[in-house]
């Protein structure tokens, strides 16, 4: 799941760069740094996690399901 978010992050970063939307480019770059850590969703609050999902254009109704997926224990 985190890899899907990383892909989405790269896509959005390119999109905002093309649109010269510097604020959102910065947002995506910061998110990219956060997503670099496999355990990032265990290191941030659920409020942060949901905000990242929002910035990655995930629909709000899917937040809970994706969050549960992201916080599954690794075996």
């Amino acid at each position: 799941m985190i890899n899907k978010l990383r892909e989405k992050n790269i896509q959005l970063q390119k999109k905002f760069e093309q649109a010269s939307d510097s604020k959102n480019v910065t947002v995506q770059k910061v998110i990219s740094q956060l997503l670099a850590d496999d355990d990032c969703f265990f290191k941030m609050s659920i409020e942060h996690a949901y905000a990242i999902l929002r910035e990655l254009n995930v629909k709000p109704e899917k937040f809970e399901k994706i969050y549960l997926e992201l916080t599954k224990p690794k075996n």
Binding site: T26, V27, V30, I31, E47, Y50, A51
Partner: peptide, 9 residues
């Protein structure tokens, strides 16, 4: 930085 740029949910 993320906090400064975006509002938390």
């Amino acid at each position: 930085m993320f906090d400064a740029l975006c509002e938390k949910e």
